[in-house]
Write a protein that binds this DNA or RNA. Structure first.
Ligand SMILES: [Mn+2]
Ligand SMILES: [Mn+2]
Ligand SMILES: [Mn+2]
Ligand SMILES: [Mn+2]
Lengths: 218, 218
DNA sequence: CCCATTTTTTAGATAAGCCTAAAAATATTT
DNA sequence: AAATATTTTTAGGCTTATCTAAAAAATGGG
């Protein structure tokens, strides 16, 4: 059985490496864990001894097959609990992360799957992030980044890349939610900002914001 | 913020002292925590420094006012989560303790109360144990022990005192559940066993079992 | 390719929570 | 009331996860 600290490391190493699957630097892992590089080194050595990461001194680390499997179970639990908190307890999408951060560590062979069933097998969490299934596999429709759309193209907002408090609160403020139909009206080459219509309203968002919105690939 | 270990101690000290409110010996606390007396001493010193127990070296300990308040919030969480697991996720009453043992430590100002509302403010958990309300107060109808009833008296089973796996599985086996209408048919003075009718069926239980069943005081 | 800078690892400390063994206090017997 | 037994505390160790400071390795500009 892994400690909460070990599980948190595995999950964040997964998040960091998800896209590139490259070796990750000790520093990048330490930063993600909000800790010091020396602490990250300690943990990488421990996880390496347990066969959960492939780690070479001074080179970097990535999850092993076994480590990735465990990381997926934690991601699954995190996202299912977030879904529970929003769907069943009425929380907002910007309120659930810290609670799920704790709930993801509950150890029970059956709990996760019963929760999954209770929620009727959701495929995405409140931030639109895909929920791994019981086998740890992600099976969801592909998505693209809003910033990659051209003028006059449109699609449904299915998720956010950055799920930080600040970003979610910003989206609340400009009244953009998952499920909105978004159409690109204009792209300003000068600052790369996007003018979009979302359902009825029309707004302008920065290129940075546009890079953090996932649109259903249709 | 208290550690899980500290919270577990407070909760078990509460459970031990609930009835008598007497000073508790280090040994009794150690036994309840399934740990060594020296470890219990360490913890009692720490809790005493934090003002959560009143502790006198070589004499014993009891919860302080402040410690009891905290203990009640943990008991509340434990029992609400057990109720959730049975009512919403379909667990049996003998399967939920270990999971609730973990869930009771989730820290969130709002979660417990939202869960309470979601469950429609239950007053008893799946074992019939009273659930403290948002103010930490227990407000439930009084109950008496089945063993205190006389021949021909009857009442509704509202809870069990011992909620151990073994006892719950025994009750499953003899088909006794909370809500059953139980009537005392005979009490055998020789071994203090009780012959009872529970709904339609008629069975004999030991005096020990009878001492662990709570009947609604009517 | 060398030297300075940056990154990473190691060394040594600390705090929590547990342990065993020994010492101290208390309780029980005779 | 002494001797013995039991209970409780203390002393000292271990593990996990963190930190700071120092050492070692890697990197990159000239
Ligand atoms: Mn976490
Ligand atoms: Mn999420
Ligand atoms: Mn617990
Ligand atoms: Mn219970």
């Amino acid at each position: 059985m892994l400690s909460q600290a070990e599980e948190n490391y595995l999950k964040e190493i997964y998040a960091l490496g998800e896209e590139t699957h490259e070796l990750l630097s000790t520093n990048s892992i330490a930063k993600k864990m909000k800790t010091k590089a020396s602490s990250a080194t300690d943990m990488l050595q421990k996880l390496s001894n347990k066969g959960l990461v492939d780690y070479t001194k001074y080179k970097g680390a990535r999850l092993s097959r076994k480590g990735e499997t465990i990381a997926m179970t934690i991601v699954r639990k995190h996202r299912l609990w977030e879904t529970f908190l929003v769907e069943k307890l009425g929380y907002n999408w910007d309120e659930v992360h810290d609670i799920a951060e704790q709930l993801e560590h509950i150890q029970s062979k059956t709990l996760t799957n019963r929760l999954d069933a209770f929620l009727e097998y959701p495929t995405r969490d409140p931030h639109g992030h895909p929920i791994p299934n019981i086998n740890g596999k992600i099976v969801t429709s592909e998505s693209i980044i809003l910033a990659d759309l051209n003028i006059n193209e449109e699609g449904i907002l299915i998720g956010v890349k950055d799920a930080s408090d600040n970003f979610l609160k910003y989206l609340n403020k400009i009244n953009i939610t998952i499920g909105d139909n978004i159409k690109i009206l204009d792209i300003e080459p000068f600052d790369n900002s996007f003018t979009i219509s979302s359902d009825t309203k029309q707004i302008t968002i920065s290129g940075n914001v546009a890079k953090n919105l996932y649109i259903k690939n249709q």
